[in-house]
């Protein structure tokens, strides 16, 4: 656990830098839809550490991203806090939701919530309608983030590696 307190912030910081620096390279369409790799990490932490861990790390990661982006401070903090908290509901013995396609499902649900909160509030007072926001931004971003989260599935787990060495 102590190791995690150091590990998670470092991973989050690294992902935040990556998100702010290079992620625009893989942006989709002229709407500039990008995957949210920081959110994937927050969801992972939520599943791993529970509701408190997910919401606290989500809050600080979101706030840092808000500060770095310089506009609408607090919006990503709110979205990540709620997403991390919801991810915490999927914490189980044996990390069942971190395995295989369960993680993709949780990521999609939490991304939908996060994107809904973010774009829902961001589009207030603009001429973009609710259906457009949902279709063009919320579903697209959530789907893209879920697809990118598949990377986690190909990262070999410690247990698998240990099993491999003993075999």
């Amino acid at each position: 656990m102590r190791f995690n307190i150091i590990k998670y912030p470092i991973i989050l910081l690294a992902l935040i830098l990556l998100q702010k620096s290079f992620i625009s390279v893989i942006a989709l369409s002229k709407l500039n839809i990008t995957p949210d790799i920081v959110l994937i990490a927050v969801i992972y932490i939520g599943i791993k550490e529970g509701k408190i861990g997910g919401s606290v790390y989500g809050f600080f990661a979101g706030l840092l991203l808000d500060i770095l982006s310089g506009s609408f401070v607090g919006l990503l903090a709110l979205a990540y806090t709620v997403s991390g908290f919801v991810a915490g509901f999927f914490k189980t013995e044996g990390d069942r939701f971190l395995s295989k396609y369960n993680f993709l499902l949780v990521t999609f649900i939490c991304s939908l919530i996060s994107c809904f909160l973010y774009y829902g509030l961001y589009s207030q007072g603009t001429s973009t309608g609710f259906a457009d926001v949902m279709l063009l931004y919320v579903f697209t971003s959530a789907t893209y983030t879920t697809l990118i989260s598949m990377v986690i599935l190909v990262i070999p787990k410690r247990k698998t590696l240990e099993r491999g060495f003993t075999d």
């Binding site: 401070v73 607090g74 919006l75």
Partner: peptide
């Protein structure tokens, strides 16, 4: 945390 977020948002 939500209260803090909303505080920042409404700032």
């Amino acid at each position: 945390l939500i209260i803090f977020s909303l505080y920042f948002i409404f700032s």
